[in-house]
Computed example of a mutant assay.
Amino acid sequence: MANEVLKKGGEVGSEVSGETRSSDFEGMRFGVKAWRASASGVREGGSPAVPIVLVHGFAQQASTWDDTARLLADAGAECFGFELAGHGAGACSAGGDPAKRSDFFDLRFQARALLAFCRVVARDAGVAPVLVGYSMGGRVALQAACLAADDLRGGDQFGRISLRSSAAFAPCDRTGRLDVAGVGQRDTAATSAGDAVRMSAAVPFSALVLESAGLGPVDDAAREALRERNFAWAARVRDEGVSAFMDWWAGLPLFESQRNLDDDQRERLRAGRLANDTESLALSFERAGAHAMPSQGESIRALCELAAKGIPVSYLAGELDAKYCKVASTLQSESQGAISCCVVPAAGHSIHLERPEAFGAILEEVVESCTPKPAAP
């Protein structure tokens, strides 16, 4: 399937290392890495597993998924690492300069490109992929989920109103908790023929897995604080350059547990960070930072609506990552259990790097739950 989905965009490596390709969307060239499913991982009955689209974090590339993708490929799942604007193999545009096309870095633009790529994978595989986003990649995947939920609302009066704040569409009780009663219940009406067509057009993924991803600012004050922080970081990387900035970035408490990685892993992680250019990193902060996300209330409601339509949503946080364990707890509470939230033991912010086997096992379960069962003889 990889050859059908992707345009050749670089050297083609072995099945183990993955194939480097590209995907064009409205003038932007996104890098993609494909890992073929192992022949030994063919499922009983010969039915292929649902493919997986993996979206990396800030200053990383698709290769950050190598260990996880190999495990999943051995289990029979074809994987695609989608690289964000200005990251990895993708040029900023079909031949351009980041500063001249900063709109390519917009969170919504990248989310639309991700949805378009998932549709291509779904078309060629015959089944929608599982979408997995880590950190900044989770931010883009979450924005894609909000856009998909907007599309699902499409024809009715509720859907014609653009969501802008949780207050307008998620009434709160006296404790301030979002009122999502009934949202997490599977909507059996979605099984009708008309709804099935609408679902396939609006939601080109079978399941969504968010790893260590924020949910968006809780209010306007939080959004402004995030905007100021992200623009300050953009200025810092422009002033200091990539190498000095990444030395500081790697030393943040958020990444402390990465010091337990072996020397080779740490060196590959650093080399990947240093492979980025200054302006692309700065624009990623300014145009796709957490301040550009939908509000937390809107994000949670969109995820609950997808779950209600039969699209499983999972949230993963590492036990050593206090910040995102709190996010997982908030999501579990506000969604009233509609979203599956899991804290992975002995892992920090980068679960797929620190505990690839545990992370892979979770994804295998998600894939298994979404993979069509072979017809009875």
Rank of each mutant, 00 (worst) to 15 (best):
L316P: 00
L316R: 02
A317Y: 09
A317R: 05
G318L: 11
G318E: 09
E319I: 02
E319D: 15
L320F: 06
L320K: 10
L320A: 11
L320N: 09
L320D: 11
L320V: 11
D321G: 04
D321Q: 03
D321T: 00
A322S: 13
A322I: 09
A322K: 10
K323H: 13
K323Y: 08
K323N: 06
Y324S: 02
Y324I: 01
Y324H: 10
Y324G: 00
C325Y: 02
C325E: 08
K326P: 01
V327N: 05
V327F: 08
A328F: 02
A328K: 00
A328C: 01
A328L: 02
A328S: 07
S329P: 01
S329T: 12
S329Q: 15
S329M: 11
S329C: 12
T330I: 10
T330L: 14
L331H: 00
L331T: 09
L331R: 04
Q332A: 15
Q332R: 10
S333R: 14
S333G: 14
S333I: 10
S333H: 11
E334T: 02
S335C: 06
Q336I: 07
Q336T: 10
Q336D: 13
Q336P: 10
G337L: 08
G337N: 09
A338K: 12
A338Y: 13
S340I: 05
S340P: 00
C341S: 12
C341N: 03
C341V: 06
C341A: 14
C342I: 14
C342P: 01
C342R: 15
C342L: 15
V343D: 05
V343C: 07
V343H: 08
V344C: 01
V344Y: 00
V344S: 03
V344I: 13
P345D: 04
P345F: 04
P345Q: 04
A346N: 15
A347L: 08
A347S: 13
A347Y: 04
G348N: 12
G348A: 13
G348C: 11
G348M: 13
S350V: 07
S350F: 02
S350A: 15
S350N: 12
